[in-house]
Structure formats: C-alpha cells, structure tokens
Design a protein around this nucleic acid. Structure first.
Lengths: 169, 169
DNA sequence: AGCATACGTCAGCCTTGTTGACATTCCAAG
DNA sequence: CTTGGAATGTCAACAAGGCTGACGTATGCT
C-alpha cells in the first residue's frame, strides 16, 4: 500500500503530489481545518442548549425547506432516533415546524420558523465569514481546486446529495 | 453580514467566488467530504473497541514519536482527562508505550509499539488510499488549491501546529 | 385484507467530550 | 532546604450525540 518516496514519473507527468508525505499533509490539513470550520458555530451554540447536531439539522432544513424526515436522515447519515432527539427539542423550542404531508400523510415536512431562521443566519454568518476569509486569502483558482478535491473525497451517495443540493433544488 | 448576490467588482477583479452561494457550497463540501475522510478508518475501528479519538492519538504519536502528553493535548485540542482515557486503553492494550522523560521526569514520552505501528499503518493506508484517489482525480493544481484554502481556514494555533508538522520535524 | 413505509418513542449502551477535585512527582527559585 | 508551581495521573460525575432493538400508530399500496 504505502508507496514510500513515490517520486515516479508516469506518462511523462510528475506524480510528486501523490507521495505519502503529500497525502499525509492533506490528511492533517483536513483535520486541522475542520476544527476551524466548526469552531465559530460551536462557540455560539455552546451558550444555548444546542450542539453541532442541531446546527446540521437547521442548516439542511433551511437549505431545503419542506424536506421530509427520511430525506434529512439520508443527508445527515444518522439514525432516526438520533435525529429525532434533536428535532424534538427544536420543535419544542419553536425553531422548527413539522407539518403533516398533504399527498402522503405519513410524511412530515420540516420548516424553520422565524426564530429558527434567525438562529440559522447567526450560525451561517459566522461560518461563512471564516469561509469567505479563507476563500479571499486563497483566491479563485485555489477555491476551485479546493472544491474539486473535496468532491472527489466524498462517498458516492454523499456526492450525489451534494451535487443535488448544489445544482437542483 | 449576508451579502446576497455579491456579484461585485472590486479593484477590477471578479469576486463571484465569494457569493453566499459559493460559500454555502464550500461549507457543504466540507461537511460531506469530512464524512468520507473519516469513513474508512471508522469502519476499521468499529470492529475493535476503539474510536476516532484513538485514531487521532495514534496518528500524531506516529507522526512525532516521543512527543509529550502536553504536546499531544495541544494538537488534539481536548482535555487531559479525555486524552488520558484514550491513552490508558492504548497503553493497556500494548499499542502505545509511555516512557518517563530523562531530562524532565515529569514528562511522559509516547511511542507506538510494533502492534501500534501495525494498526497505524492499517488505518493510514485506508485513509491515504482515499486521499490518493481524490488527489489523482483532481490533479496537482487542484491539490495545491485544496491545501491553500484549508490552511487559510485554520485557527492560528492550529495553523502553527500544522506548519510545524509539515516543515520541521 | 395484509404488507410495507414513514415516523415517533422508550430503553439502554458506547464513545468522547466536559468540570472539579485531589495526589504525585519533580524542577527551580528563594 | 523548603516551598511553589508545573506536568501528569486519576477518580467521579455529567452531557451530547452516536448506536441497536423493540414497539406502536398512521398511512399507502397491492
């Protein structure tokens, strides 16, 4: 597996960016960057009774208003019991509204209330500010590469969900 | 905060890559990609009594053999109690060796045993394989951009730790 | 009528984070 | 030499947020 100093030339093109050293740098970059990525919303949520799980639910409900529980389950990749615990508190606190489906009454469609949207903005603003600063520092070409690599790193199902959110809505 | 459709022109340069839409894509890309990033090691660890916390400890001990507990604490960003619980099991299971410092006997220097190195390779190989595939798919320029954006996204302390691991050792 | 689906919920477990309190060991400064 | 502070270890208690398993209720489809 480990290819050591893989300073190979393949098809006339240098593959120096695929050395174990380069890959390890990528791994550590992901680790450290993800910490920064979640730091600001985490700080805001720490004061309330909420955590990262609530943030994720709020984000994707805002992103796709009216989405069903099952849908959200698939995107978040958690069990319904886990999600339900989070949704229950959000509904109880009046941040999320759960409406029975019209065509299929088994389904519940999820919406943010005004209070929910307000919190979403707060969290989103903080996270976007950091992302904006990073994007600005790195420049457009770097941003394109950033997205390209991340997309290639996703599992197939997640990539589908990502692309669907990005392109269609 | 929210700048809506920020199709501004500033200093003659297009900032279309800084629209809220672009930033949201970046945010969701990080979320989905991180899931893929941790998926393979998580699967391996699920069979054992270990979790992601053990992986992180093993990774950085392998990366900087002989590192002190305090050092590891700073890098991982958790409390000593939290780390200690993980280290205790790893030492008990013979994956990590904790040697009393020679110059300062208060410090414990951490090393992977052979069994520890073996597990590290297993986890690392899985994670590197995915990273390698993503890097190969995206190409060298994308990889450069990827790292650039991630580095810009880190907190100052984490960036320092990242750069130190990357450059000096 | 009967099976499958969508959702909610209860109970219990695990990992991994947190605080707080306290003991030990050692270095260094007075 | 004593004492204070630093580094570490450990115990206890707790919370968030994952998980499985089981069960109940509507609803939809065949």
């Amino acid at each position: 597996m480990s290819d050591g100093r893989a300073a190979q030339i393949y098809g006339g093109e240098s593959l120096l960016f695929l050395t174990d050293e380069q890959l390890r740098q990528g791994i550590e970059a992901m680790f450290f960057a993800y910490r920064g990525f979640t730091a600001d919303p985490d700080r805001i949520l720490a004061d309330m009774a909420y955590g990262r799980a609530h943030h994720r639910a709020i984000h994707f409900i805002n992103r796709a208003p009216g989405t069903t529980v099952n849908n959200l389950l698939a995107i978040l990749g958690v069990t319904k019991q886990s999600l339900n615990r989070v949704l229950r508190t959000l509904v109880a606190d009046g941040l999320v509204e759960s409406r029975v489906g019209t065509s299929d009454k088994r389904e519940r469609h999820l919406f943010l209330t005004e209070a929910g949207q307000s919190l979403e903005s707060q969290l989103s603003d903080a996270q976007r500010a950091r992302m904006r600063a990073a994007f600005r520092d790195a420049g457009p070409e770097a941003v394109a590469g950033f997205k390209q690599v991340l997309e290639a790193m996703m599992d197939t199902d997640m990539r589908r969900a990502y692309v669907k959110l990005r392109d269609g809505s």
